[in-house]
């Protein structure tokens, strides 16, 4: 029970910080939002909003939760992390509380995107959208945990260039902007090697109101597996001495 309580305490603390700096939330969603507003109407002439918006959700996940490690770099530098590491709280709580807060940030950003998407004429089924949000929350946990682990491992100087560069191919390979079914064979194969494609296709199905498909099942399975792996890795890094 300590674990839940401590996780909750850390979560509340981090979330309060996030909410206090509202600019951070807006900034994180800015790029996908620009795509939505300035590219979406164009895309809608050949495709549909229900195809584009899920792609932008993956984009915001990678740009927001995927770069959450910046926060931990900052806390490591200011000594906050070390101070927390001397409390009896388990390290997994320090990680989970922080990561859940990044996930909530991502959910806020996702809702912002979907709201604007609806305003432009997106038609997505509410139950499907809610299910997609659950997936997004889990994806946020995975990405934030991974990002934290990477940040603590490679250090502050490398983190920014590595991650900001690294997320771009991942966004493209997920098929965020155009479905990968249109891609040539090699690109399609490459895309299948990244987890985000599966999540994205599941979200597209959910938006379209197709719930009981293999695509959805695959997306859910990949997301659950990904979060288990990422949280384990993250906890290991938080546990490691001197991290």
């Amino acid at each position: 029970m300590d674990v839940l309580r401590d996780t909750w305490t850390v979560f509340l603390y981090n979330t309060r910080i996030v909410l206090r700096q509202r600019a951070g939330i807006v900034f994180g969603v800015l790029q996908p939002m620009l795509y939505l507003v300035l590219f979406g109407p164009l895309f809608a002439t050949i495709g549909s909003w229900e195809t584009l918006v899920p792609g932008l959700l993956i984009q915001v996940a990678l740009l927001s939760a995927g770069l959450a490690g910046f926060g931990v770099v900052f806390d490591a530098r200011s000594g906050v992390l070390e101070r927390l590491r001397v409390t009896p709280a388990r390290r997994v709580c320090l990680l989970l509380g922080r990561v859940l807060s990044s996930s909530v940030t991502l959910l806020i950003q996702s809702v912002m995107l979907m709201t604007v998407g609806y305003a432009f004429g997106m038609r997505a089924w509410i139950p499907g959208v809610l299910a997609a949000l659950v997936l997004m929350g889990l994806l946020g946990v995975s990405l934030a945990a991974l990002s934290n682990a990477v940040a603590l491992n490679i250090g502050p100087e490398l983190f920014a260039p590595v991650m900001t560069t690294g997320v771009v191919p991942l966004i493209l390979l997920s098929g965020a902007f155009l479905p990968m079914s249109m891609a040539p064979g090699w690109l399609d194969a490459l895309s299948r090697a990244t987890p985000f494609r599966y999540v994205l296709e599941a979200v597209r199905d959910l938006f379209a109101g197709r719930y009981a498909t293999w695509t959805v099942a695959a997306g859910v399975a990949v997301t659950v597996l990904l979060s288990a792996v990422c949280v384990t890795v993250g906890t290991r890094v938080f546990n490691r001495e001197n991290a």
Binding site: S78, G79, V80, R83, T87, P88
Partner: peptide, 30 residues
């Protein structure tokens, strides 16, 4: 850890958060 207090060489406060909030979090983690 439960029985000790530690003040590191560089301290450990987030320059942007009210210190009272941080103290509260800290106490609650104990």
């Amino acid at each position: 850890r439960r029985r000790i207090g530690y003040v590191s060489q560089g301290g450990g406060t987030n320059p942007a958060t009210p210190v009272g909030d941080e103290l509260e979090l800290h106490a609650m983690l104990y």
